[in-house]
Design a binder for these strands. Structure first.
Lengths: 173, 173
DNA sequence: CGACACATGTAACACGTTACATGATTTG
DNA sequence: CAAATCATGTAACGTGTTACATGTGTCG
């Protein structure tokens, strides 16, 4: 395939969920070629289009990727968890407010995702559907966790240091 | 606080879950100072230790961070979802095997996390506990999603193109 | 003819991450 | 005294991401 085609394909399979800048496709293709995982296809209709072909090394790497499960280490740290942890440790922050705002946002996202799922069901693109459902499961887990956080907060120290419901501007050094 | 101290603090609050290279602390501190969010504290015991203090700009940014909920956009794309989607689209890949291997890994991680939770409960560090529980919720969601994927696979096209249970080395171009 | 889809690329930036270099102080 | 802990930094790499520059073909 060639770059433009790859982007169209990717966007079709994930929808507006994961927008992909076309520039990145080309930079990535360059890097893949640099690493010898793909190579430009010699016998392709040279209409300005640059078709790439996977190499043996690339095929091996792809196989490794598929056969090696992802470990929790090596995944990017979860910003939300960090934020909540920091909010609890930092004096002068209304943790409840942070949780509630996030909860609202998460539920809204969940609603949007569910709406998208309807579309995905129609088009019957299996890959698209799974990606969508993955995000739904994640959003649900996030919502549950936030609820859990709130109950924990209510249960233990009930000392809302800051009564301000709005933006907490004052944070200790 | 000074760099070394920050790292100790962070490690204490997240445990071995998120190891943090000390070098990164210093690079990050430099970048924060570059952006005027923190500044070296003039009147500090100059024992070689470099104490930093948050600036007004920094305090504002921190407040913004706490008060602005995370949107699903802008978060890193989920590698697992991509992998599964790709596995389905790529001919010659035993998707079931991929799912099962991942499921095993996820359940193992879940077991480890639960074990860690026991420790977190003892030390009663609220922040650490929440981070831990966040990861548990996520892992559970992942497991549920994987199960869901498997049932979906069984339900629809039951055409295990590759009977090989082991590593699928042959992948189409 | 002008707008739009098709098609490719480059330069630059930010950030996470690691490896390496260095020195002071404590402690078994 | 040697080893470990405390403490700071720098150079470099890889990757995700964006903004920008460029050109061709098509069609209303």
């Amino acid at each position: 395939m060639y770059g433009y085609q790859l982007r169209v394909e990717f966007e079709a399979s994930t929808g507006a969920t994961w927008p992909l800048n076309i520039g990145q496709v080309y930079t990535t293709l360059s890097r893949l070629e640099r690493d010898g995982l793909i190579e430009p296809d010699a016998d392709a209709d040279g209409d300005g289009k640059v078709t790439y072909r996977i190499t043996d090394a690339g095929r091996e790497r792809l196989g490794d990727w598929f056969s090696t499960p992802l470990e929790r280490h090596g995944r990017p740290r979860d910003e939300l968890a960090i934020k909540l942890a920091m909010a609890m440790t930092t004096p002068g922050v209304d943790v409840r407010a942070v949780v509630q705002r996030q909860r609202t946002a998460t539920l809204r996202a969940l609603r949007d995702l569910t709406r998208l799922k309807a579309q995905a069901d129609e088009t019957a693109d299996a890959a698209w559907l799974l990606v969508n459902e993955s995000m739904i499961f994640q959003a649900e887990a996030e919502a549950r966790w936030l609820d859990h956080c709130e109950t924990q907060l209510t249960a233990s120290g009930r000392t809302p240091r800051s009564t301000t419901t709005g933006t907490p501007k004052e944070v200790a050094p």
